[in-house]
Amino acid sequence: MKLVDRIKQFFVQIGELSYFAGRFFKEVFTPPFEFRELLRQCYQMGNRSLVLVGVTGFIIGLVMTLQSRPTLIQFGAVSWMPNMTGISIVREIGPVITALICAGRIASGIGAELGSMRVTEQIDAMEVSGTNPFKYLVVTRILATTLMLPLLVVFGDLIALYGSALVENLKGDVSFQLYFNIVFDALGFGDIIPATIKSFFFGFVIGLVGCYKGYYSKKGTAGVGVAANSAVVMASLLVFVVDFIAVFVSDIFYEL
């Protein structure tokens, strides 16, 4: 019985989320546009997650290179290190790790912020003062995450590659210039374009889930906690689902 309820709940949520996304697409193209608020949100999001993405990217690049060195040496293929790390960071690890960090950092932030605005009737207050709260709060945030995530991914990728290059430089005597030359030679459009498109979708999903959970937050302070928490869980899960679909689709397109 309980399992049935949960499954039902799951599909209800998917339905509501789709409806919410539909409303976003309806409102995003109709004036008035809230440009100032959009810029403010973009700035805040970048500002909030830049350091975290940087530190994580650096460590990931460093650790990944350290861990795979022994195996590559065993096969006498250590000179392939830049190609391998470069491709795996740009195609998969960079976007996914950045998206997961943002799911933890941004989706929960949006969920808590909108949730508390809902609970304290600030959203109602906006509505009665003639500002469409969906446009002012939701549309700007979803656009901001969608636009900012690819930028954060590029930033995270570069830091991760730098971390990897550092290891190669210290342990393997590969100069930074040589390392990055090999990496950029190895990367083709088939690596960069799918990863970038994927990042837009990650950003969209993160903003969408955060806003959805916050906007429909239950009354009471407990509702805010639930909104923030479930936003992280759902956003992280959807990041993987989107990743799966993206890999599947790009696989068809590029016949790899």
Binding site: S116, T120, E121, Q122, D124, A125, V128, S129, G130
Partner: peptide
Amino acid sequence: RSDIGFLFQGSALYD
């Protein structure tokens, strides 16, 4: 609504 003022129970200031 611009002719109606609404004072909310919990003030509802944008924090």
